Computed example of a mutant assay.
Amino acid sequence: MSLLFDRQLDAIAADDLEALMTQYHDDATVIRLDRVASGPEEIRAFFADYLALRPVVEEVTAVRETTDTILYRATMTIGGNRVTAFGTLVLRDGKIWRQTAAALPQQ
């Protein structure tokens, strides 16, 4: 896995909002089905809310990378719910420029 992806996982595990923010390009957008956050202020609020749910990455079950894109699947617990999470990180200038994320409850 890339160093950027490892840092992302470490920041989530450490509940470290400031470390997460260093990962994002100034022109970043994070897209989920229930919410879109663009720019540093919205992304900060987005991740403050996300970290309040105490996400735990239990296992990264698949990762595929190219020079500027990371696609992943992980088993997580978010807000006490076990889910399979899917996402994409698109990079620009070595930082996350676009991110998509979705989670499906585990059966």
Rank of each mutant, 00 (worst) to 15 (best):
F5R: 03
L9S: 08
A13R: 15
R73Y: 00
R54N: 12
F46K: 07
T22V: 11
R64H: 14
K95Y: 02
I96R: 03
Q23Y: 02
L17S: 10
M1G: 15
Q99R: 13
Q8E: 13
S2D: 13
Y72W: 15
D10G: 02
A13L: 10
R92I: 02
I43V: 14
I70Q: 03
T75G: 00
F46H: 07
N81D: 14
A102Q: 01
I96T: 12
Q107S: 11
R7E: 03
D10P: 00
E42I: 03
R82E: 13
S2E: 11
D6L: 06
R92K: 15
L53F: 12
P105H: 07
L33E: 02
G94T: 11
K95C: 08
Q107N: 08
K95W: 03
F5G: 02
M21T: 10
L9E: 06
N81Q: 15
I96S: 03
F5I: 06
A48C: 02
I43T: 05
I43G: 06
G94V: 12
Q8W: 14
E65K: 00
A28Q: 07
R73S: 07
F47N: 08
A19L: 06
R92H: 14
P40D: 10
A14Y: 11
A19F: 11
F86G: 00
A85W: 01
F86C: 00
E18S: 14
M1I: 11
H25D: 15
T61H: 00
R92A: 14
L3D: 14
D27G: 04
M21W: 15
I96L: 04
G39Q: 04
R98I: 08
A48H: 14
L33D: 10
Y50I: 01
R64D: 07
T69C: 06
M21I: 07
